[in-house]
């Protein structure tokens, strides 16, 4: 039986690790390769490197960052941020990524998912969805997809988009709640349940993690993996510590 995955996320800008609330007020804190290796030592099951560089110059360092992280890391590495097409994906895979996340480009041009999946396989092709409540006062109205780091709301239904993306070749969904990201108020379990119930590929829950109870409820809602950044980045806890707490609750983890 598969175990659940605990995935620290490194937000990287211009080749350096940063983390901020909703990508604003970024703080510089460290070298991605050193950080990733430390997380592996601390029991991480996988690492996500998300490039939040705003400029092409910043993003040019992306492949080099991936190469340096790869040389140190003996667990899977997923890389996202600014991937526009299959050529970008190929560059990152060649540099040492095991999976590539696509977000805005897939919304603008869904065929890019099929192109990446056909060339490199569905198991390399991760669709990143940033989802926000259409109406925070009416959860029944569902979630819409937001793109460009939350700058644009698309009106597109997040659940329908997840289904379409899987049909087009996505092999995994990295699901971020835009309402919860950076808040430490817990994952959006209703969103996780809606997406995990709609598709047959694995779903990584992201946005809002603070306590072991948050992870537990996200996993019970249907997530196959849980991603977090701040709680690891500021040393509040480690993947190994969280796994011990989850195991005590009957969740299967790699220890």
């Amino acid at each position: 039986m598969l175990t659940v995955r605990i995935i620290p996320c490194l937000d990287v800008r211009d080749g350096r690790v940063v983390k901020g609330v909703r990508f604003q007020g970024l703080r510089d804190a460290g070298d991605p390769a050193t950080q990733a290796a430390a997380y592996e030592q601390q029991g991480a099951d996988e690492i996500v490197v998300l490039d939040v560089s705003a400029t092409p110059e910043g993003r040019a360092t992306q492949a080099d960052t991936v190469r340096r992280v790869r040389a140190q890391l003996s667990i899977p590495l997923t890389v996202g941020g600014g991937v526009r097409n299959a050529e970008n994906a190929g560059t990152l895979l060649e540099a040492g990524a095991d999976k590539v996340g696509v977000n805005t480009a897939a919304v603008e041009q869904p065929a890019v998912l099929t192109q990446i999946a056909t060339r490199f396989g569905a198991q390399c092709t991760v669709l990143a969805i940033d989802a926000a409540y259409r109406d925070p006062h009416d959860p029944a109205a569902g979630w819409e997809v937001v793109v460009l780091s939350g700058k644009r709301r698309t009106g597109r239904d997040a659940v329908a988009w997840a289904r379409e993306a899987v049909e087009r070749g996505a092999g995994e969904i990295l699901l971020t709640s835009w309402d919860r990201d950076g808040t430490r108020a817990g994952y959006d379990d209703a969103l996780i349940a809606a997406i995990a119930g709609a598709v047959n590929v694995p779903v990584i829950a992201s946005g809002g993690a603070d306590t072991p109870a948050h992870l537990l409820s996200a996993l019970r809602a249907g997530a196959d993996a849980v991603l977090a950044a701040s709680i690891f980045h500021y040393g509040d806890t480690t993947p190994a510590q969280l796994k011990r707490e989850l195991a005590a609750q009957g969740i299967r983890v790699r220890q």
């Binding site: 039986m1 598969l2 175990t3 659940v4 995955r5 099951d45 667990i75 899977p76 095991d98 999976k99 569905a122 198991q123 092999g171 995994e172 047959n200 590929v201 694995p202 196959d224 993996a225 790699r254």
Partner: peptide, 29 residues
């Protein structure tokens, strides 16, 4: 869930070979 993406327990069916018991990372459909 397909693809299988994640860590799964590997159980060798005999002892004395290269394979030992442990958790391995899979990415396959």
């Amino acid at each position: 869930r397909v693809p299988q993406l994640g860590w799964n327990e590997v159980l060798p069916q005999a002892e004395g070979g290269l394979l030992e018991r442990g958790f391995a990372y899979f990415a396959n459909s």
